[in-house]
Amino acid sequence: MIDGTVLELLACFAIALVLMVAEYLLCTKMKNPLWGGIVPGLILAGSVWIFASGAVPLELRYTFPFVILNTVFFGDWGTGRDKYQKMQQKEIEYMRAKDL
């Protein structure tokens, strides 16, 4: 039988995976870069709210996972925007090559 902690951990990983896929799609498919910032912004706001409400004590051992989480999602946002710009550049080069 699976322990409740394991189920919680699997649920957290599933939620994180869904959020990362959503962020990837928003970063790489939308023209406006702010669309890709929705998920990291919500995660940052949620992190601030969790600590401000006192639900989690503001100690290093509790804040470290939140710092890692926010760093990963904001880093993915930047990476996704770079990929979007590269895809746009390739499309422009393809169109120029076709015009010649």
Results as ranks from 00 to 15, higher is better:
1 M>R: 07
1 M>L: 07
3 D>W: 12
4 G>P: 14
4 G>H: 14
4 G>I: 12
4 G>L: 15
5 T>P: 05
5 T>E: 14
6 V>H: 12
6 V>G: 06
7 L>S: 13
8 E>A: 14
8 E>P: 13
8 E>N: 15
9 L>C: 15
9 L>H: 15
10 L>K: 14
10 L>I: 12
12 C>V: 15
12 C>W: 15
12 C>F: 15
13 F>I: 15
14 A>K: 08
14 A>M: 12
14 A>N: 11
14 A>C: 14
16 A>K: 06
17 L>P: 07
17 L>R: 13
17 L>V: 12
18 V>Y: 12
18 V>C: 14
18 V>P: 06
18 V>E: 11
19 L>K: 01
21 V>R: 04
23 E>A: 07
23 E>V: 07
23 E>S: 08
24 Y>P: 08
24 Y>H: 12
27 C>D: 00
27 C>G: 02
27 C>R: 03
28 T>W: 04
28 T>I: 03
31 K>T: 02
31 K>C: 06
32 N>A: 05
33 P>S: 09
34 L>D: 01
35 W>N: 02
35 W>L: 00
36 G>S: 01
38 I>S: 00
38 I>G: 00
39 V>K: 00
39 V>H: 02
41 G>M: 02
41 G>V: 02
42 L>Q: 03
42 L>M: 08
42 L>C: 09
43 I>L: 04
43 I>N: 02
45 A>N: 06
46 G>Y: 01
47 S>R: 05
49 W>Y: 09
49 W>E: 12
50 I>S: 01
51 F>S: 00
51 F>Y: 04
54 G>N: 04
55 A>D: 09
55 A>C: 06
56 V>A: 09
56 V>G: 06
56 V>P: 04
56 V>D: 10
57 P>M: 08
58 L>V: 09
58 L>C: 07
59 E>S: 10
60 L>K: 09
60 L>E: 04
61 R>S: 13
62 Y>K: 11
62 Y>R: 13
63 T>L: 07
66 F>K: 05
68 I>S: 05
69 L>Y: 04
69 L>T: 03
69 L>G: 03
70 N>F: 04
71 T>Q: 05
71 T>F: 04
73 F>I: 00
73 F>S: 02
74 F>G: 00
75 G>M: 05
75 G>T: 04
76 D>A: 13
77 W>C: 01
79 T>N: 13
79 T>P: 01
80 G>T: 03
81 R>A: 02
81 R>I: 03
81 R>W: 05
82 D>F: 10
82 D>L: 15
83 K>Y: 09
83 K>V: 10
83 K>G: 07
87 M>C: 08
88 Q>S: 11
89 Q>F: 11
89 Q>Y: 12
90 K>A: 12
91 E>M: 11
91 E>N: 11
91 E>K: 09
92 I>K: 14
92 I>S: 11
93 E>C: 12
95 M>T: 13
97 A>H: 14
97 A>R: 13
97 A>I: 10
97 A>T: 07
99 D>Y: 14
100 L>I: 11
